[in-house]
């Protein structure tokens, strides 16, 4: 077996068509997860009674189990749950008709929420208390302090962590192929098995992931420079 370089280019062109699916499986969970993350982080920072235990359990469990487990649990569990609820309410829902990507997106959003909540929480905790006191002293209420003073600084400081999570979820979206999603890895798998050229197809897929990662990291360092320009120290 020798490596067929020209076929790698063919495979590359074929596989890159699946990039939008991978981006969708990355961006939507991160977007939804961001809001889950903020809510969970605030619950844990303010130690909201009753919800704190749920939030702690959510973050701990989802960070303590592989993401493939979340995908599988939702993929197999949700249809059963929906069927049971539908039977109780007396409505007929055809769970087979729900696209698989819905389950994948739900699972990835929940995992992203857990990981992002830790990033946001550590960002909030890194803001010195003097900032809060200063905001209170000019008459802001707790909500204004959080939205105008703490969160902007916390999120700006967390950009490197957000990038890590973004890249991590870009790579995690590859497990969606295990539930037959045709994203980058799924497409590579199809190209590989129809042409029986496994190595070439996976090299091509690896290069695509690598390029996207480098691009994302480059963009994030630009954004970080802009977002943290307020704390560049004494020299401007």
């Amino acid at each position: 077996m020798t490596i067929d370089i020209p076929f790698m280019w063919t495979a590359f062109k074929e596989i890159i068509k699946a990039l939008p699916v991978t981006m969708m499986l990355t961006l939507i969970p991160l977007f939804v997860g961001f809001f889950i993350g903020i809510v969970v982080a605030l619950i844990r920072v303010y130690k909201v009674k009753g919800l704190l235990a749920i939030a702690n359990g959510y973050v701990s469990f989802l960070r303590g189990t592989p993401i493939i487990m979340h995908v599988m649990l939702i993929y197999f569990g949700f249809p059963l749950l929906i069927d049971a609820v539908a039977a109780k309410l007396g409505i007929s829902v055809q769970t087979q008709l729900i696209p698989i990507s819905t389950f994948v997106l739900t699972a990835l959003s929940l995992s992203a929420g857990a990981y992002l909540s830790e990033v946001i929480r550590s960002g909030i905790l890194s803001i010195p208390k003097g900032q809060v006191e200063a905001a209170y002293s000019v008459g802001m209420n707790t909500f204004q302090t959080m939205v105008r003073i703490i969160l902007p600084q916390a999120l700006a400081q967390s950009i490197p962590n957000f990038t890590n999570i973004f890249v991590g979820f870009l790579h995690t979206s590859s497990i969606a192929f295990l539930v037959s999603q045709k994203e980058l890895t799924g497409a590579a798998n199809i190209v590989a098995s129809t042409n029986l050229k496994f190595l070439e197809a996976y090299i091509a897929a690896g290069i695509i992931y690598w390029l996207v990662t480098i691009l994302v990291e480059g963009l994030s360092s630009l954004v970080e420079k802009r977002a943290t320009s307020y704390m560049r120290g004494g020299v401007r």
């Binding site: 890249v167 192929f177 996976y202 690896g206 992931y209 690598w210 990662t213 480098i214």
Partner: peptide
């Protein structure tokens, strides 16, 4: 490369 590609790949 290792940090830029999924473990599955």
């Amino acid at each position: 490369f290792i940090r830029g590609t999924p473990i599955l790949i």
